[in-house]
Nucleic acid binder design. Structure first.
Length: 310
DNA sequence: CACCAGGTAATTC
DNA sequence: GAATTACATGGT
């Protein structure tokens, strides 16, 4: 479909674009734990760096304002990154009809989009995510960017850096990873950064093998140290745009066990059954659950978490 | 101070 | 294969 027929978009002044959006909530999308590089400003706008490009973005009702950017960048980067071509209302309906127990999470997370991120960046950030807190993950990623990322530009007096290339991070020592707060994951990251080019080639060969095989691409990712089933699923979903995924972490597991009457017990079975149920909307369904689970994390922690599942 | 965090790898049976 | 455990770091 042609871009002009699909989007109501125009330049309002030099380097500044306005875009009308449906089923899109900026704050939820960039602040729901799928990415770690957007910072909220005082006025509820956000600043981030993607593919080395700095962007300031805010939403008023159904209008998104982005700068500094151009129509070429919108077409070549931002519409894909924010996944604006996909029909989320259709996925929404499918999720609720296939799983009525999803109604609450679907209502709470309405407007979330699954970002199309860089595979390399998602690999590193989700290795860091293992047994870690989101604020600490974000802090580590910020540290990596300012130390080893390329300068992306300045916005409102502050310097911003892109996520470091695998060439840059491939040079890091154990101590340098630790200084970025990687903790016990540092040795995994040293090896993964070095093995990345070979793994990525293998992955592309695998994905281009015209047939079904798409299930097995995760096994390729899991050859990387620090990448297990959950992280490979996150890389597939957020980094490769492969929506037939259902990463199960402690939060999703808790919500699934509490809400889904026929929830299997093992994470692996939860994953396969959810994908079977939601199909291409599985990744989105998982993100809705994760978002809802963390909405009231302050109350939920403490007394409830003990009695939940086991 | 014990427990937890978007799990994984190593060990054990 | 399933179950158990250590793992660093910083916040309650």
């Amino acid at each position: 479909m042609h871009i002009d027929m699909h989007f109501d978009m125009h330049m309002v002044e030099s380097q500044k674009v306005e875009l009308k959006v449906k089923d899109f909530d900026l704050a939820k999308t960039v602040d729901c734990g799928q990415c770690f590089r957007w910072s909220r400003q005082e006025d509820d706008s956000y600043i981030g760096v993607v593919q080395g490009k700095i962007l300031h973005i805010y939403q008023r009702d159904d209008v998104l304002t982005l700068r500094p950017t151009t129509l070429d960048d919108m077409k070549g980067l931002w519409l894909d990154y924010f996944d604006l071509w996909r029909d989320y209302s259709m996925m929404h309906r499918r999720i609720i009809s296939k799983g009525p127990w999803m109604a609450g999470a679907a209502a709470a997370g309405k407007g979330i989009r699954i970002l199309k991120q860089d595979p390399w960046e998602t690999t590193i950030t989700f290795i860091l995510s293992a047994n870690n807190h989101i604020p600490r993950i974000s802090a580590s990623v910020a540290s990596l960017a300012t130390r080893y990322g390329d300068y992306a530009g300045e916005f409102q007096g502050k310097a911003y850096y892109g996520f470091p290339s695998f060439e840059a991070l491939g040079q890091l020592t154990l101590e340098e990873w630790q200084q970025c707060g990687a903790g016990y994951r540092a040795p995994y990251l040293v090896k993964t950064a070095q093995e990345w080019p070979g793994c990525f080639d293998a992955l592309n060969n695998h994905l281009s093998m015209s047939s079904q095989k798409h299930q097995n691409h995760r096994q390729v990712l899991e050859t990387l140290p620090g990448v297990g089933p959950k992280v490979s699923s996150c890389i597939s979903l957020y980094g490769l745009g492969y929506h037939r995924q259902f990463p199960v972490d402690v939060w999703v597991r808790r919500r699934v066990k509490a809400l889904w009457p026929e929830a299997p017990s093992s994470n692996r079975d939860i994953e396969t059954k959810a994908i079977d149920l939601f199909g291409d909307a599985a990744g989105y369904a998982q993100q809705l659950l994760f978002y809802e689970a963390r909405l009231n994390r302050t109350q939920q922690n403490g007394n409830k978490s003990r009695l939940e599942n086991k």
